[in-house]
Design a protein around this nucleic acid. Structure first.
Lengths: 221, 221, 221, 221
DNA sequence: GATGAATGAGTATTCATTCAT
DNA sequence: GATGAATGAATACTCATTCAT
């Protein structure tokens, strides 16, 4: 049994807090902070949040524990920073790249592949965020933000397709995208985090199939 | 009254465990164990796993801490027992009750409502199980077992419907049920645990709609 | 790290204490007590005092823990009884058997062999008594009693041999027997308990040699 | 100030140990470690191993419990360090000092006095080491090391004296020194630890007498 | 800015002993 | 007499955070 200790209600002396609030003053300082952030990401991916110790992060970054607190308020703060970066990377990775495909079917297929690729690249960190999100609202927010980005984009897409007469006009775009987004999200979770053994192409095909049928997409596949 | 406690280095494993392994010998013992299990469930629902102390459970059951260890090996062991009961309740609650509805559409609608009802009843405990499942394989197993039960039942249903010519015969029953199961599961999670505000009937209707369309169910809704 | 708990200052209810004080009332009771004593000896030999639990002793005797306290006041009390029996067996085993040998040299040789044999037979229990004797005066007493018996017999022998003109008359019989007794005792400890590998006959010969030379025994070996 | 502590199941080994393994990095650290070691010695002498709490040691050193664990892995580890120092002090104290006495008799007499002086100075700690040595092989090793040093030196001395024609050439030096070493060792134990009341000069004289007679030392006392 | 060291609250678990049946 | 169950005090150890150099 490991013990986790978190101090609440005690603050640092005014001097150190000032430095943290002010942010790094020099290029070297900026580099140090970035190194610590990278180190923290690696440690969290490896050990999860609870089993990661500030000492581990400092060691991974090659600095002393004291130095860690020059740049970050707390273990939770650095995790928040790591998770924020994750959110930005995920949202970015879900954006369509390159020319828009001619068919809606292909658009959906590519969106699916982007999602899977992004999820796979970050799956370890996604687990840790999920774990901590159960008890930390700020982290849960970040998690939801990624979902919102995906769902909102999907809903917009459905609305456009409805206006073009390509998909069922009676569908509620928002509810449909929530539900379909959950499907894609959780399927990746079961596949990539819980270790259920799916064949990738068949899985993507099934996801795309359900998606297009749900929309009554008026195209030959 | 004075007690002297001293720790020494060596020794065989605990002997009290034998009694625990043997289980309660009397009716009173069985009752006590059940009380403790109930108390543990309430405490875990209220405080989560990490914040629950063995002392809390003992107090909730109205017994001394020592008595807790008469019946359970550890905090983890009692949680495992609580989670096992949860699994059994969930699997049971997902079974169809009463006469089989005439239409497939109605069968699906009722399955959806059963899932939502079961999820809602146990949502607090589901959160805790999910949280601990990230780091404890035995708990993750229990989590997956519920999913398997649901997915396997769904897959069987699809196969039957295919043989009756009611749904798309080209669909892979297993993949489809995995994907649709993920949809329902995660939608409930987002709704009941992450607090996203859905209107219940509209949500169930959307889930059912996507489900039946995915199967190309040959029935008028 | 094992924990050892000993309660001081609390007494049993008057009823059970009376029964313990009174001793067994029936033949069956006497047999039970003897069984528990035997069981305790085996457990202490196997596990030492600290690692022996009352539950172990009860189980070894095939009775419940509660029954143990029908016959003994405490874990220490049963150990005291075990150690007392050990003392009696040791003192008895050190007494000369059979016809007295003609030569003093042979008397000494046989005494040495008796000591070694007795020590070897009880070496496991001797360790436990030594361990506990460090902190429990009553046990230390029992340990010393064996030593006293051996040393006193030796001193008497020396005095007799002096009066017969067989050994150095200027030697202080008491001091000499204390010192020679220590030699034999500790040599057996090092040999049989600490595991130093001595060849038995050579060792006994050396002990006897030093002994007789110390006394200036006027005999050809 | 409020702290929240929670225990979780899994995780890699302690990281603080790395710092402990590395040893103190500054002069202040070295001094602190030495203070803690001294404090531990005093506490162990006073209370024995079982009754000594880590809190006692920290308090004796005037630091917090956490600081104790900055320098030592555990209560057992610090005892090991204390016992190792004891071994070194003992071995050193048994070495001959000053000019070698002219007569073998005097050499032996002085060796005896050195042993008694060293034993007396450390008798409290010797008890504790003996007690723990029963169950901890590493400690038993340290105990034996002191004995070996004494016995080996004695055996070498006997061999030299044999080559000089001063003592019985037929004696096995190793066996003799084992047996005589046991005599001296255990006599001190009975005297200084078990509280048997010997007159010092008479005791030393007797020990020396037996020793020289055992060797058939060819000198007038 | 960097460092090594100091802090201290917090809890799971054992087992000798008692007692109601 | 026998049993199974109930009791409860007592302590080692971790690690996030602060602070003096």
């Amino acid at each position: 049994m490991r013990q986790v200790v978190a101090a609440v209600g005690v603050g640092p002396g005014p001097e150190q807090q000032q430095r943290r609030d002010a942010g790094p003053q020099t290029d070297r300082g900026h580099a140090r902070k970035a190194e610590l952030l990278e180190a923290a990401r690696r440690v969290f991916e490896r050990q999860g949040f609870l089993d990661a110790r500030v000492a581990d992060i400092a060691e991974e970054a090659g600095v002393s524990q004291g130095t860690f607190y020059t740049y970050f308020d707390s273990k939770e703060a650095v995790f928040q920073a790591v998770a924020t970066e994750l959110r930005d990377r995920m949202i970015d990775a879900l954006k369509p790249r390159g020319p828009r495909p001619a068919s809606v079917h292909e658009q959906i297929d590519q969106a699916m592949r982007r999602f899977v690729a992004a999820y796979r690249a970050e799956s370890r960190l996604i687990v840790v965020v999920a774990q901590l999100g159960h008890s930390t609202p700020e982290i849960a927010e970040l998690r939801l933000a990624v979902r919102e980005a995906f769902v909102a984009r999907t809903a917009r897409g459905i609305r456009v397709q409805q206006s073009q007469g390509l998909v069922d006009p009676d569908l509620d775009p928002w509810l449909a995208s929530e539900v379909l987004g959950s499907m894609v999200d959780h399927t990746c979770w079961v596949w990539l985090n819980l270790g259920k053994d799916f064949e990738e192409e068949a899985l993507i095909a099934t996801l795309t199939l359900v998606w297009t049928r749900a929309l009554r997409l008026a195209e030959a596949p």
